[in-house]
């Protein structure tokens, strides 16, 4: 068990390394470097920077060095907490992103919990009542859920709220609380707003997981150990919950590995529709204006978030599945 966790933790290093490479490549892709863009930006705003400042910036970020060196300078700086400058915001990237990433994490994990809480029982229902009316309804809804882009759903929710409630449901806080310090009332306000993005984001995930849970459980329901349980005299409900469901739970847990990327992906788009204070809107803004240090850092941290989520689910899986626990 300990060996498994240790090995799994060690695997994080190459993954982190690869993520930083991906982020760095994205930062470097647009033509021209950061300082050129910065200079051009200043020039258009009418206060051209002097070349000494620009050279100092070049030196600081090692832009005159070969790519490999630049990469290591960037990673080194990042480890020290310096993620470069955002020329849109005219401030260091690290000042901008943490609040936003915190909100992204909150939304992603709340949605994950919601997705699981709904998909698990619905999937069980759909499998146990295979080919019933209820199963057909669930199946059709899950296909529909998988076919609807989350941003479209967000738009529809917005439209409906304006049309029928008379106000817009965007944001995570009421106007009074947007800039207020954290308090109990602010938390309540957050919870009141949070459910809409959670539901909108969760639909596609729920739809996919219901299909998976149903398929897994149908596989397990046909296994001989279910018959063993029945021959013991177990009541049907206990039997299904205690045996096949328990076994089907394991592949279900490992779906975190792909649900989380989907959620973080969805967050990027949905949050810009619902104007949530998560990392999505500023990422899109940054990418549109090719503010690459900001964009690269956000992409990197979103990937890291997913990697950590996957790590946690793998460790959880090792706790519940003896076959992994003992397989050393």
């Amino acid at each position: 068990m300990l060996g498994f966790i240790l090995r799994r933790l060690l695997w994080m290093f190459p993954s982190f390394f690869a993520v930083t490479v991906v982020a760095f490549v994205i930062i470097q892709l647009p033509p021209g470097d950061f300082v050129t863009s910065y200079a051009a930006d200043l020039a258009t705003s009418g206060s051209p920077a002097d070349s000494a400042t620009l050279d100092a910036l070049r030196l600081r970020y090692g832009l005159d060095q070969p790519m490999v060196v630049q990469y290591f300078t960037w990673v080194g700086n990042a480890l020290k907490g310096d993620l470069g400058m955002s020329f849109e915001y005219r401030s260091p990237v690290s000042d901008i992103i943490w609040d936003r990433l915190g909100m992204t994490t909150l939304v992603a994990f709340c949605t994950l919990a919601f997705v699981w809480l709904v998909a698990f029982p619905v999937g069980i229902f759909s499998a146990v009542r295979q080919y019933s009316i209820g199963d057909y309804v669930v199946t059709f809804l899950s296909f529909l859920g998988m076919a609807t882009p989350s941003f479209l759903l967000a738009l529809v929710v917005m439209y409906l709220s304006v049309e029928f409630l008379g106000y817009s449901v965007g944001g995570l806080f009421s106007p009074d609380f947007v800039n207020a310090p954290w308090s109990f009332a602010r938390v309540i306000d957050l919870v009141q707003h949070l459910w809409i993005p959670v539901v909108v984001l969760g639909v596609a995930g729920i739809a996919a997981l219901v299909r998976i849970m149903r398929a897994n459980l149908l596989d397990e329901l046909g296994k001989p150990y279910v018959e063993t349980g029945r021959a013991k005299g177990l009541p049907e409900t206990t039997l299904i919950l205690r045996y096949p469901t328990r076994v089907a739970l394991n592949p279900f847990i490992s779906t975190v590995g792909w649900v989380l990327p989907v959620l973080v992906s969805g967050d990027v788009i949905v949050s810009s529709v619902l104007s949530l204070p998560t990392s999505g809107p500023i990422l899109i803004q940054a990418l549109k204006t090719q503010d690459m240090y900001l964009g690269g850092a956000l992409i990197m941290f979103q990937c890291v978030l997913v990697l950590i989520g996957t790590l946690l689910s793998d460790i959880l899986l090792a706790f519940v599945d003896p076959r992994i626990r003992y397989d050393n």
Binding site: P261, S265, V268, L287, Q290, L298, I299, T310
Partner: peptide, 18 residues
Amino acid sequence: EFILSLPTTPLWLGLAAA
């Protein structure tokens, strides 16, 4: 495995933005 563990939309956006 690594690519599958990444959120796709930000990557697509990042590449498209370039």
